[in-house]
Nucleic acid binder design. Structure first.
Lengths: 313, 313
DNA sequence: TCATCGGCATCAGGATTCATGATTGCGCCC
DNA sequence: GGGCGCAATCATGAATCCTGATGCCGATGA
């Protein structure tokens, strides 16, 4: 009875999916096969890795421990493969990255331009979506990494801080608010405001901020289409609160402008963006290179905003 | 074409032996098999790992690099195996136990430490609550067992005596009362005293004791948060009466101390703790083992208190 | 309380992979 | 040039892996 990396991969998939069936689907296998592999491991060690209680499987402490060790094995193994593969070719291959709309509006374009110029052989695919779907896709291994708002940790993901950016108010320029001047929302009187739907992690942050700081809301409009929201703001007396990073290029634009931008003040509000990647893998060289460009681009605009002393809400 | 740990082992052996034949011998394989495995790796990566020049094989730079990465993989993999094998002993399953705060403060921690070391496979869940909710949860079958103060029997429960512990007075050390010296409450003059709410079964015991023994109460403060109560006592001239078991570790603590502890004397007052479990079930092996550890730990501190001749009130 | 359903375990078969021993090819030394 | 040592190759039998079907259990909902 020989242990194989297949065993480990299937176990890791089962652990992360909390389901043999889902794991099989992810790893191009069958439920039966997954079941047999895991039983094989359990027999070899004489330890139960999952508690089967009819409907669902849940890891035992031994399973938890083995999982932590296994993702290490997979990561190191991947590093081994990369080490030898680098003797064959330079930077190429395919890379799939998930980004939330905040990233795609201002940061993506210049980062992409830089990257494709430097690495013409890399096939780049960008997926734009919201945090929920992106998280799932990273978990499933469909994405090399994703940038999403900070949320509670999820099984099978490694995450690290990517950037912090202030939330800013966006208003129709016809209102005459001085561009880039920090504002207290409560001073603006009852607001007609565009917010994302509850699926979006930012919604809760915003509502908490409104409630805690006496912001009067006249009308709430749910709109998950960010670009549409900005266009809507430019044509009506609605305003929107969006991550500053999203407006980075607009902020520096000279007059005349359709929209004015205003960091929230008293207190400021910021949002943390995190990088998530599958815990069992390491970033491919191409993905790592792109991430570095993306990060550099995201921080290029830091200086236009007031310093954020306070941690994010 | 799936990569396997066998590939890696054979490659490592070949690298170290500088010979396929010797490697085969070391790994209980044949020269042919080693040759095929290594060719498989080379094909997969499109890189040559060994230079074959008739008589002997010598690693290429790619082979050197892969070797260094591979021994890392083998090391990490072995660590994974060791991690899970240490779980080979003891019981398994899940166990949910309800404890009153009296138990969680001094007894729980050492008992838990002993238990998880002996039974790493058991998923332990501890619920801290008061007698009412705990009794309900045992009745509902949500808990394997609970430790609660002695009360009237409830249908659907089996109970047995778990421990008897004296009630003790706890006072701010600044009062200068000699630590561990038994006291008559009535001798202390009018008391400012912290007591649990009426939901707590001990409240009635205490009030009965006060009335029967001429204890003068200047102020009563209801506080169900046990830890908070102790902290409050340490900062004010209030005192509290709590089960001795709760203060077991504090009792043995050397000076300097924030609190002094005093068994109630003339007459002593004790409280009985009982084990309750669903009458329709028997204790799971894990629960029984944990109970035994808990009981042992609870009795480990018996000697620090005066002998209780009298039955509890 | 019963029927239904989702999900895992088990089983037998067929496909695939793996290991083996024999044989061949290559370079070296005598 | 003929042994000699070692790796490559090949065909075959063994072990394994994967699959689809089926059974079983607990959860869910009427």
């Amino acid at each position: 009875m020989i242990e194989s990396l297949r065993d480990i991969r299937l176990f890791v998939a089962a652990y992360e999916a909390r389901s043999f069936t889902a794991a099989a689907e992810r790893e191009n296998a069958t439920q039966s096969g997954v079941s047999q592999h895991i039983r094989k491991i359990e027999d070899r060690f004489g330890v139960r890795l999952f508690a089967r209680s009819g409907g669902a499987v849940s890891p035992t402490p031994a399973g938890d421990s083995y999982y932590r060790a296994c993702i290490e094995v997979l990561r190191v193994n991947e590093a081994a493969n990369r080490a030898v593969m680098s003797y064959g070719t330079g930077l190429d291959g395919e890379m799939v990255v998930g980004l939330m709309p905040t990233m795609t509006r201002s940061v993506l374009a210049p980062a992409l331009a830089t990257f494709v110029a430097a690495h013409p052989n890399v096939v780049v695919r960008i997926v734009e979506s919201f945090s929920g779907p992106l998280t799932q896709q990273v978990q499933a291994g469909d994405l090399d990494f994703a940038i999403v708002p900070l949320t509670a940790g999820t099984i099978g993901l490694r995450s690290r801080r990517f950037a912090r950016t202030p939330e800013v108010l966006v208003a129709d320029a016809a209102r005459g608010l001085p561009h880039m001047m920090p504002l207290r929302l409560a001073d603006l009187g009852p607001l007609k405001i565009v917010v994302p739907s509850r699926q979006n992690a930012r919604r809760a942050h915003l509502e908490g901020y409104f409630a805690a700081n006496g912001v009067q809301v006249e009308r709430l409009l749910e709109l998950d289409a960010m670009l549409g929201a900005l266009d809507f703001v430019a044509r009506t007396d609605f305003v929107a609160v969006v991550p500053g990073l999203m407006m980075a290029t607009d902020a520096a634009l000279p007059a005349p402008r359709r929209l004015t931008i205003h960091p929230l003040a008293d207190p400021p509000l910021a949002i943390d963006l995190v990088l998530i990647e599958p815990a069992r893998r390491t970033l491919s060289p191409a993905a790592a290179a792109f991430l570095s460009v993306l990060e550099q681009e995201a921080h290029a605009h830091d200086a236009v905003w007031p310093v954020l002393e306070q941690p994010a809400a």
